[in-house]
Every structure is written in structure tokens, then in C-alpha cells.
Amino acid sequence: MNTAILIEYLPLFAKAAVVTLKISLAGIAVSLLVGLLCSYIQYFRIPVLSQIVQVYIELSRNTPMLVQLFFIYFGLPKIGISWSRETCAVVALVFLGGSYMSEAIRSGLEAVEPVQTESAVSLGMSPFQVMRFVVIPQAMAVSFPAVVANIVFLIKETSVVSAIALADLMYVAKDLIGNDYNTQEALFMLVMFYLIILLPVSILSSVAERRIRYAGFGY
């Protein structure tokens, strides 16, 4: 491996990492919102909407992101829905991530024992207060590790956006392998940059898991 080449590649990969990070952040933020919305619809069993959410969750969880992305980027323009590459990548990530976040948050909400809400109601709390002061704080503690694990999962999944020619880490690596034939250097940088991005989140994830078990909310 040639260090001069590594140094030459550094700015290219740094630029690509920004693309990966941008798509990840946007996708994860919106996924969380979609997940929150879907999980509440399911938790309160809102008629019609909760059936629609169920269908969405099954479709999203049982198909690969690459296929979802191709459908959105190549398929939807044929019926007049045409977005930029970045938007398509974020939309695909949200389509996938929304369902994973929803399941993570819902499992937290459902882990709160009925006796908790019943007690809160008997203390005279309004439905809003029950959620705000009793259910959500406990549910958050339970779903936090799963949510962080989903964040790692979603950042990893962004690697497929290179397939629609978005210049993320994968794309730059493939480009450099193809053009310069410096395979080892390009792959080394690829691994390093993914480690830099994913290691902190992954460590947070395992710490969260241990902490929450220690806290032992809900059971």
C-alpha cells in the first residue's frame, strides 16, 4: 500500500463521507418522525390508518432497499413523480427506515404495563398527561437501544445509493478502483471512513443496551 496515494485520496473520501453523512442524517431524522407517527397510529389502533400503516410496514420490511431505491428513482418518474438523486436516496431511506423506527418505538410503548396507565388515569391525569408523564418516559428507555441500532443499520444501508450514481463513499471507491486501479488503497480508505462514521454510533449502541438493562424499566 502506497501512503502517497492514501494522502492523495483523503480529500476525495472526505468529500464523499459528507454525502454519506448528509443522506444518513436527513434520512434518519425523517425516519424517526415517520416512525413516531406510525407507532402512535398503531399504539392507539386508529381505524383505517393503522391498517394502512401495517401494510406499509410489511412492504417496507420485506423488500431490499436497493429495489425500493430503483423503483423510486427509475420507476416513479414514469408517472410524473421525478425527484433529484439526493431526494430519491433520502425518500428510499425513509421508506425503509420509517418501518424499522416504528417497530422499535412501538415495542417500547407496548412494554409499558397497562397498570401504569390505569394508575395514572385513577390519579386524575388527562390522556395527554398519561402519555407525556407516564408512558413516553418509560417507553423511550425501552426503545432507545433499538432506535440506536436502527441508526447504525440505516447508515450502512446508505451504501446502496452509489447505484444511482450518487457520489457517496462506495461510489468514490468504485470509481478509484476502476480508474486508477489502486484497489488496496481505495478499499483501505473505504473501510477507514466507514469505521470513523459507524464506530462511535455502534459503541453508543452497545453502551445504551447495557445501561438500559441495568435500569430495568418496565420489567
Binding site: V152, K156, S159, S162, I177, Q184, L187, Y194, L199
Partner: peptide
């Protein structure tokens, strides 16, 4: 921790080279 696509690249391009 590695995206599966990176693993695929490591083997398909890296190991072979």
C-alpha cells in the same frame, strides 16, 4: 459494522487483487 456492500467489494476487488 461494515455495510455488506463494503464486504462484497473487499472480497470481489480486494482479495482477488
Amino acid at each position: 459494522i461494515m455495510p455488506q456492500l463494503v464486504l462484497l467489494f473487499l472480497v470481489y476487488f480486494g482479495v482477488t487483487r
